[in-house]
Amino acid sequence: MCNSNIYMPYPMRVEKVTNEAPGVKTFRLNFINAEDAQQFTFKAGQFGEYSVFGTGESTFCIASSPTREGYIECTFRQSGKVTSALTNCEEGDTIGFRGPYGNIFPLDEWKGKNLLFIAGGIALPPMRCVIWNALDRRSDFKDVTIIYGARSVNDLVYKHELEEWKNRDDVKLVVTVDPGGETPDWKGEVGFVPSVVEKTAPVAANTIAIVCGPPVMIKYTFPVLEKLGFTDDTIYTTLENRMKCGFGKCGRCNVGKVYVCKDGPVFTYKQLKELPDEY
């Protein structure tokens, strides 16, 4: 490892493209080299650098679960240069991936607890990794509740998986859309995530809350959770900041002396409270 180029990506085959929502796609990526597939491991919460050769690299999480071996998946919204180039990729194309980087959601520490997942919009992907990881070892945990919200019905991602979770007896799923985002046949909740959390969250005792969403959702959801009795060390989230390297050298992602790429991206609310307001 010491003598290898840490910027070399794994060549990956785009195996499957799924259109999730307007501008949002999921890629299933297979390792082109068998030895890469064999040695690659990661844990829930980690991220990587995805690259389109000739356009550049972009940072996002691994959206598939480590329990599903042999491939990784990523979900992204077309927004910048690299995600636009990714959007134009087709099945069979070769892209680059390097990683995994960053810390993890400590699933092993959560054994025997209830899990409450709260996600908003395009932030379901980093949580989907943990959700499937937990569901694939379901007996380790007690009640599993998923609260997911998006601006509109059209903006909900992983629609098939939402259906799958809805039909499971061992998962409680609450899906909500922002007021005005519902369709005439919408059967889910209508309302912003924080208020739906207040209404539908399970009791805080013996429960871990994992929250991923846009900053405004996070900002209003954390106080609701505290009001419901969650302590700040039982609330987890994942931060994103602009990154180039992924391993503490390029100088962008630090919040004070804390590096999102190395110390995060997973933080507890307690840890966030100790960070300067610079993220």
Partner: peptide, 14 residues
Amino acid sequence: ACFDIQDDKHGSKG
């Protein structure tokens, strides 16, 4: 030491 990473493309290679 802060740096950027960018791709430089020339046709099919870069």
